[in-house]
Nucleic acid binder design. Sequence first.
RNA 1: GGAGGAGUGGCAGAGCGGUCGAAUGCACCAGUCUUGAAAACUGGAGUCCGGGCAACUGGACCGUGAGUUCGAAUCUCACCUCCUCCGCCA
Length: 441
Amino acid sequence: MLFYWAFLFACVCYTVCTMLDIKFIRENKDIVALGAEKKHIKIDLDALIVLDDKRRELLSVIEKKRAEQNEVSQKIVRSPEPNYKAQMITEMQTLKADLQKEEEELKKVMHDWQMLMVAVPNIPDMSVPEGVDDADNKEVKVWGDIPQFDFTPKSHIDLMTNLGMLDLDRGTKVAGFRGYFLTGAGAELQFALWQFVTDFFRNKGGFTPMIVPSLVRREPFMGTGYLPQGEEDLYKTQDDEYLSGTAEVATMGFYMDETVDKKDLPIKMISFSPAFRREAGSHGKDTRGIIRVHEFYKFEQVVLCEASHTESVKYHEELTANAEELMQALKLPYHVVVNCGGDLGLGQVKKYDIEAWLPSEKTYRETHSSSYFHDFQTRRLNIRYRDDDGKLKFVHSLNNTALSGRPLIMIVENYQNADGSIRVPDVLQPYMGGKTIITKK
RNA sequence: GGAGGAGUGGCAGAGCGGUCGAAUGCACCAGUCUUGAAAACUGGAGUCCGGGCAACUGGACCGUGAGUUCGAAUCUCACCUCCUCCGCCA
């Protein structure tokens, strides 16, 4: 209970003392440790603090020597006396030798220090439930009726293959494991969804549409928290770039190392890009169909806002609501879960997953993932704004899927008829030339 | 792929071994003048880390990282980015 008060305090002072810099970690070790524990992430904070003591000590010694060096340097310049000059230079040579030793030591310390620092997770919100993995996520909302079929519903694989919408055999032939082609009405339906989403955000207003790179340098991955921990799940090129698994990475990189104008906040972006995932940790999972693929297209909502917990929460709810609105327009039954501590990423404070009903599996499967980070990402990416008090602050960042590859699957399965045809959702019909049903030719 | 050139403060642009955190101009902020504004004049102002209640003070930062030197924006090397020309390709 005491910890919860400490927790609350941490949240309150959040906007004042920016978080997860070393100062915050030192002053709030227990809260950080508790947060890591909730996320089931192992981190040795005591080792970090010992190392930080060492770092501070070395820094102080080095800075004193450098001050002396600077001072004597000035004397050397001004002194008209050659002998005195030579003597001082000799003294400085000795000082320099010491300095180099200490700098070498500091370098080593800094290396280890940085390794530990990037591994310190952000603190989850109080409202995040305890738990180890996605099985412990808590359902917070259910929308729509699960369809009752008077026949045995088919999987998207059978439905789409039969209707010439999907070609997995040739997908594998051409692209290898988890490869696929969307063909005919399959491609058309996907295009329709993209158009629908584009129009949805245009009508909503405030979101800048973006088409962003997938081939991205290391820095934005470090900044967003996908590296160094997620190396395994990323494709890497021979030029040391990575293929990103979400438009979030490049979109967050857009303002990297920049100071944005406070009057432009919040900055809302709706980004489109291909997404690549090695699925290194999911070898046996979802091997049939296109639930889990190495390559798909994605619209991502990204928001940068003022450094305020209240603002973050407000936009988090908004981004989640946007995604729900899309699902409701498509009339896809879904539920929302709040992710438990163990299912949160390193930088995430809180996350909602939206999961839509998949008849062939008789379960909900994830279609959207909505999370906020406070300044975890922007601190690493160095994205700041000048506040009214004249101080530079790190903005807060958050993101949520708008459309991944999966809703297509949910549509196909939920809208299927007994004869294997598929009704086209009302809102998509205008984008399909008025087509109301997809049937076999 | 080949040959050259360049990266300095919000912007433009000097500096090319010490007196440089950095001239100058523009932009910015405050003040003087003015009924008000403009102009003119005067002054101020970078970021990060540390010490101090504070005034203030120490260190770092001239694309990035190493090196030479008592001392580097300035010299050397590597890398990154941008520009120009040739070639190739959409």
